[in-house]
């Protein structure tokens, strides 16, 4: 099946980024396609290239970038939510792109299941 995933919370603050990532990995391992992950609300902070967690912690942002690279997952950050929170092209991590909310609607129409992770 073709999956879309929505992430509504920032990394480290809330478990939703971790849950979404582990779900995406499991879906791919199960032979499904994760077509797009859409980042909304504080979820846009998952795309900050300025993120520097302590060395003994997971790197949530890099983990997404790697997933995008290895499995062609489209990581889309909502432009309106991103601008409100200071996420721009200049501090956007690898593998992410900034686009409009239409991409979220499309993640609903073009996938078999859309799963939301948030608070």
């Amino acid at each position: 099946m073709k999956f879309g995933i929505v992430v509504n919370e920032g990394p480290y603050q809330h478990q939703s980024s971790d849950s979404a990532y582990l779900f995406a990995k499991a879906a791919i391992a199960r032979g499904h396609e994760v077509w797009r992950v859409f980042f909304y609300h504080d979820g846009v902070n998952n795309a900050s290239a300025l993120t520097e967690p302590p060395q003994d912690d997971r790197h949530i942002v890099n983990r997404w970038s790697k997933l995008a690279e290895e499995h062609k997952v489209d990581l889309v950050v909502c432009v309106a939510a991103a601008l409100r929170r200071g996420i721009k092209e200049e501090n956007l991590a690898k593998g992410f792109r900034i686009s409009g909310l239409g991409q979220l609607v499309e993640a609903g129409t073009k996938t078999d299941r859309l799963i939301t992770f948030g608070d």
């Binding site: 409009g100 909310l101 239409g102 609607v105 499309e106 609903g108 129409t109």
Partner: peptide
């Protein structure tokens, strides 16, 4: 904001 966009996409 999502509701308005979704409506604009004729859903």
């Amino acid at each position: 904001e999502v509701v308005l966009i979704t409506a604009a996409f004729d859903q």
